[in-house]
Write a protein that binds this DNA or RNA. Structure first.
Lengths: 154, 154
DNA sequence: TATTGTTATACTCTATAACTATA
DNA sequence: TATAGTTATAGAGTATAACAATA
């Protein structure tokens, strides 16, 4: 027997959640999961993860960055970044070119296909951000949130 | 040859990060990782993960909750929650008791040891939250952040 | 010697299906 | 039939060490 017909919490045994409610870390995690899920739903037809999108976006404004520079900028360890670039390269969206001046480094570029693909992605992303802004209550609230989140990272 | 002597970004080839800077999802993820890392550093001596702490905290105010109720409240699938309770039970912090009225359910309780352990954890947690409040600029900013994060989750 | 990219590996977290015992 | 807990398993994500090529 379900507690209520549609699975809502039963008020008779409501959980005291007051401690967790305002825990910064807990709230951050729940919000991040919700936003990433919304991102994945918006990009479902595009078969692209948040990280893939971030790499494309970053490279589009910074052609020729070192592989390790992109990894560090996104907070990904260089060992784990290899497979991400592999995937983007297999899709033809990104290209590795050995640097002429330092044969150790792989310089990364978006391909023509990658640039066109990003052009298709941008309106989806803009709409995604607009939906978040609407939830937050407006661009002022969004700016406030970004400001506070940056403070947590130093 | 490193780009600068202490690994700081080289201004000559500074990355244009303007796109990512204010992406809500990206900022949320970086902030969440930073806060969880700080949590883990604060609790390093206690060998306790954020989730373990949340379970203890939740049970301390809600003795006898069903295992699946705790899992759902914390956004963890019941299948994955089994190992978490196993760990807490092996440490003697939490106890499973089969419900008398419904033999299917495991009611969860903090043990005496668990309650005492939580008493030791609370000041560490309070200090952790205080550090976050300081970073944010005060309790007003913390409340503002929590308010905005809740909106993102509905 | 130090750095870049790479491979291998292990560990955590998460998602899904299927089983059991109860209802 | 449906639910609570469990098991097994596969897929991500993450962390570390070591290696080859190059500086």
């Amino acid at each position: 027997m379900p507690r209520t017909k549609d699975g809502e919490p039963n008020p008779q045994s409501a959980i005291d959640f007051s401690m967790m409610e305002d825990a910064v870390g807990y709230r951050l995690r729940r919000a991040q999961l919700a936003v990433f899920q919304q991102f994945n739903e918006a990009f479902a037809a595009k078969d692209l993860r948040p990280t893939d999108f971030a790499v494309l976006l970053l490279l589009s404004c910074n052609q020729g960055l070192k592989q390790s520079e992109v990894a560090e900028a996104l907070g990904i360890q260089r060992a784990n970044f290899v497979a991400i670039v592999d995937g983007l390269e297999e899709k033809g969206l990104v290209e590795r070119r050995k640097s002429e001046t330092d044969r150790r480094v792989q310089a990364l570029y978006t391909t023509r296909t990658g640039a066109e693909y990003l052009n298709e992605l941008m309106p989806i992303w803009a709409e995604h951000e607009e939906r978040l802004i609407a939830r937050l209550g407006g661009t002022g609230e969004r700016d406030q949130l970004i400001h506070l989140l940056k403070r947590l990272c130093d």
